[in-house]
């Protein structure tokens, strides 16, 4: 009798456990419909949890469950739960679709010329639903001034990221930094500006109001005109001591009026660069 009872219990348990089951897709792609097959008979409640979805449906066991594309837009982990008396669950993953856009971070937006490892960029491919595309894809980084290509580096994404770093160009001006993936591309603009002044030359003369001193057109060592607004410091050393005037470069030249009555030795500096010295006498 006891043995019969055990057999009955075992059969009942097996019956319950076989009452319903679900078969989830082995792989699914974001934004595409997927089907979950169910087995068993009778009514059941189906739950789907995933990124951007949390829903519940009543259904008849044995029928397929069609998950619409809008419920599978986000790549990630999904949990399907089927309840009919007891509950069964299964997990599946939705993968990103093909790249449809590129996120492209470029630094800096303004950089001095000929600076080592000064320009860097990071590109991340995303699909149409903004899922990160983790399968390796080729990305070509380019820097161009107008139609002239200054730099090109093909690379492949690793874990959904590709990056580059390079020295800034030799010429001041606007350059375009481009990340290209097949027919997709993202462009950013970097302004290259002259580096520190090089070979600062000054000339001057005494006027009725004092000494008028000015630089020759100020260039960096690559010959680029130094940006307006860069400060040049003029120092006059005379019998009455030292006087200093800061003057910004305007249209390539810095100019200052120094009020010192006697003879003076004038020097100029900008940043760490010193210019020539100039001796101005008392007579105009």
């Amino acid at each position: 009798m006891r043995r019969l009872l055990l057999v009955c219990v075992a059969v009942c348990i097996a019956g319950v456990s076989l009452a319903q089951d679900l078969h989830v897709p082995t792989s699914a792609v974001a934004g595409n419909e997927a089907t979950i097959a169910t087995t068993g008979s009778g009514n059941a409640t189906f739950y789907l949890l995933g990124p951007g979805v949390s829903r519940k449906n009543d259904l008849n066991l044995g029928a397929d469950i069609h998950i619409p594309p809008q419920d599978l837009r986000n790549a990630g982990h999904y949990l399907a739960v089927l309840c009919s008396g007891t509950c069964r669950s299964a997990s599946f993953y939705v993968n990103a679709d093909r790249p449809a856009s590129l996120a492209f971070l470029v630094h800096p937006s303004r950089v001095a010329v000929s600076l080592g490892d000064a320009v860097s960029g990071v590109a991340l491919p995303f699909d149409h639903y903004h899922n990160l595309v983790l399968a390796p894809v080729g990305i070509n980084f380019q820097i161009a001034a107008g139609t002239t290509s200054l730099f090109s580096r093909p690379t492949r994404t690793q874990d959904g990221v590709a990056w580059f770093r390079t020295t800034s160009g030799k010429s001041a001006g606007i350059v375009q930094v481009i990340a290209a993936l097949d027919d997709l591309s993202a462009k950013r603009v970097v302004q290259q500006v002259a580096s520190d002044p090089c070979n600062l030359h000054i000339n001057g003369q005494r006027t009725a109001a004092g000494i008028l001193v000015q630089t020759e057109p100020v260039h960096d060592c690559a010959g680029n005109p130094v940006t307006d607004g860069t400060i040049v410091t003029f120092t006059a050393t005379g019998a009455n001591g030292k006087s200093t005037v800061d003057a910004p470069i305007k249209q390539g030249i810095a100019r200052a009026q120094i009020k010192t009555p006697g003879a003076a030795l004038i020097s100029a500096a900008s940043g760490v660069v010193m210019g020539n010295e100039l001796r101005i006498g008392t007579q105009p």
């Binding site: 971070l105 630094h107 860097s120 990221v161």
Partner: peptide, 10 residues
């Protein structure tokens, strides 16, 4: 991955 300028980390 930690971006060269520190503006993103994976």
């Amino acid at each position: 991955f930690y971006a060269p300028e520190g503006d993103a980390i994976e």
